[in-house]
């Protein structure tokens, strides 16, 4: 049985019973239910130990799930807690607003046990990853000795805390709600820290997260004139999704980020870490008339930057 603590909010008492039954069967026993947004907010304010994951029905009388999601996100302790929206097919059009309000994922009614198991499993992994991230942060804040938590180079662990930074999984989920036409309006760009593996080997895990958070801040600074979201994908890579019309030039973006990072050269030297060398890949877009999967689009963006990096290294070797 999982020890995760869930809060579910739905105005239908029958659905609450059904959800509780399925969750018990799947292995999640620690579920508290609320019938309204007001009840949910009161419950959240009374808890001494925060909930690990929150499930919200989108359509509720009074405060709907989207507004409730927004209010929950405004509570600092719940800023990054996974929030799964529950929606009917008729209300699927509101899912995008829910993501804009801070939702992490969604599933549709009626409950499909396989889908519920998969969604909750993903959230459990996300909670575990966030737990490790918080543990690193705590260690950093307490200036303890070597970190006890284990971090793999490939972990898409969240680095930095900012409105524009999202979990990689949340980025993927949000794009999955876009129809083909809408997805066509966005571009995915991967940004690779070429020497990230070197930094990962040289720093302790906390130091590496801080290192990557500095790179993320430099990327955000370079993108500030365009709307964007950024996710750390692991392996020293970030993926940014921005307006296709922004028509960003990878070389120009690479130079801007590099210039921003150069200002901190002394700091990296003091920490005995390499100055981050970034490489921006060509923006990748979804075709209007071809089927493009979200995972495929993000993967293509990451492959593009890897390819560019290899090409750059070959050119360097030839020179």
């Amino acid at each position: 049985m999982s020890g995760l603590r869930f809060l579910a909010v739905d105005d239908d008492p029958v659905f609450r019973l059904v959800l509780q039954g399925y969750m018990h069967r799947i292995g999640y026993d620690n579920l508290v239910s609320a019938a309204t947004g007001a009840q949910a907010l009161a419950l959240l304010s009374r808890q001494s130990q925060p909930f690990d994951c929150i499930l919200l029905d989108i359509e509720m009388p009074g405060m709907n799930g989207i507004e409730l999601c927004r209010q929950i996100r405004a509570v600092p302790v719940y800023r990054h807690t996974p929030i799964i929206m529950i929606t009917s097919l008729a209300a699927k059009k509101y899912v995008e607003q829910a993501f804009a309000a801070g939702a992490t994922d969604y599933f549709t009614k009626p409950i499909d046990e396989v889908e519920l198991t998969a969604r909750l499993g993903m959230m459990a992994r996300l909670v575990a990853e966030q737990g490790r991230s918080s543990a690193f942060k705590l260690e950093l804040e307490s200036w303890s000795d070597l970190p006890r938590q284990r971090l793999d180079f490939g972990d898409p662990i969240a680095v930095g805390r900012a409105d524009w930074m999202v979990e990689y999984l949340a980025l993927e989920n949000q794009l999955l709600t876009f129809g083909r036409l809408k997805l066509h309006n966005y571009a995915a760009i991967a940004i690779r820290v070429v020497n990230a593996a070197e930094a990962f080997a040289a720093a302790d895990h906390l130091g590496y997260m801080d290192y990557m958070a500095n790179v993320a801040a430099a990327i955000a600074d370079a993108l500030k004139t365009h709307p964007f979201v950024l996710a750390h994908a692991g392996h020293g890579e970030f993926v940014c999704v921005t307006d296709r019309a922004a028509n960003l030039d990878p070389e120009e973006l690479t130079s801007t980020i590099a210039a921003s990072l150069l200002e901190f050269e002394d700091m990296f030297e003091t920490l005995d870490l390499p100055l981050p060398a970034v490489q921006v890949g060509l923006p990748q877009t979804a075709g209007m008339f071809t089927q493009t999967s979200v995972a495929g689009l993000l993967e293509r963006a990451r492959r593009a930057v890897s390819h560019d990096t290899m090409k750059g290294q070959r050119q360097l070797a030839l020179a």
Binding site: D12, V14, F15, A90, P110
Partner: peptide, 24 residues
């Protein structure tokens, strides 16, 4: 919406479909 959300799960698939249609 409430009926459509649970009817099929509880064994009333056709009722769920009809309720979902009205909802939409």
């Amino acid at each position: 919406h409430q009926v459509a959300g649970v009817a099929a799960t509880l064994g009333y698939a056709e009722l769920g479909t009809r309720a979902g249609r009205i909802d939409r």
